[in-house]
Amino acid sequence: MSHLSVRRLWQSYGDKVVLERINLEIESRSFVSIAGASGCGKSTFLRLVLGQERPTRGTILLDGDPLPPEPGPDRGVVFQRYSVFPHLTVLGNVILGLEIERSPLLGRLFGAARRRAIDEARHYLEAVGLDGDRERYPDALSGGMQQRLSIAQTLIKKPRVLLLDEPFGALDPGTRASIHALVLRPWSEHPMTVLMVTHDLTEAFKLGTRVLVFDKTRHDEQEPERYGATVTYDLTLNRSPSTPPPPAELQAEQASTRSGPRCPPADAPRTLGGAHGEPAHPARRRPTDASTAVEPRAVRDQFVGAGPAPARRCAGHVRRRPRRAGAPRPTSTHGPRRPPWNRGRYGTNS
């Protein structure tokens, strides 16, 4: 199992508070997408879970035990860049985890042990579609292939928690889509919890079973670094047919989530967002209300898609209603507001 509990987590660097009051219970086998604006602390949060940094205050528990304060094999990671070792071939990169585990002194396997490791590695390489490239060096691979390699390299260790730090940020959209499918598959085969940091909300919803948004809720004009970001938006999506249904109490809690949007049916298509083009990106909008980084409505629009929701207000969809025949021509006082530049000319006297 791999249940993560985050208790009263704060992280600050000197006077600069980055994260504050983070409390989370993350169920085993969930796929948590973490979104938010640049600099909102989502990568800091990932580094804390990874053990790359130690929290200023608070604890993170994995199945009830505090996380070791340094990175270890229980938590795998895929970074945006520099994720594979350039001096090892594709195969070498994948068997490295096994060699390290089985040969403490040399970190290298020979003979039959090596052949066994290679067989295991090839299983993963086939899964990510790189078996044919196993003798090549990462330098000769495209960015998408390198990320696939990194995923295989990480999964062979069967980590309890998989951390993805904007893993697809540097990839073009087509490559991204093919890797999304890949990320969804192994996740449902091994019992592990996935945390993915992304700034692409479409991606967050497409992949995640739960979406977290980090943002600041308190602002101090004089001292912008006085307050840190916290979880401002937490949406559980109960729609993955490959995951066991969450416990009843969680569902109950879900129903009363303050953030509002209801969960769509379990058979909701996975390709949401991509199906009807890219809607206006809610995360890019500056939130007017500090309590929610992302307008629930905008998120719902994006998620539920082009359904009957009347609230779609994308610029391209706004259409002036045709005037009914026989209706009186609107006057300046009752009709639609004139644009400001000709309000004065006719609006007062006629």
């Binding site: 340094e70 270890g72 860049r81 520099y82 070792f85 001096h87 090892l88 390290i100 585990e101 260790k157």
Partner: peptide, 27 residues
């Protein structure tokens, strides 16, 4: 050597000695 590599090696379970042997030395 990029920070990512150091972290990655540790998540693969490498000890300091193994990091030296398999990651640092060859590079």
């Amino acid at each position: 050597l990029p920070e990512e590599q150091w972290i990655k090696a540790q998540t693969l379970g490498a000890s300091s000695w193994q990091v030296a042997l398999r990651m640092v030395l060859p590079q």
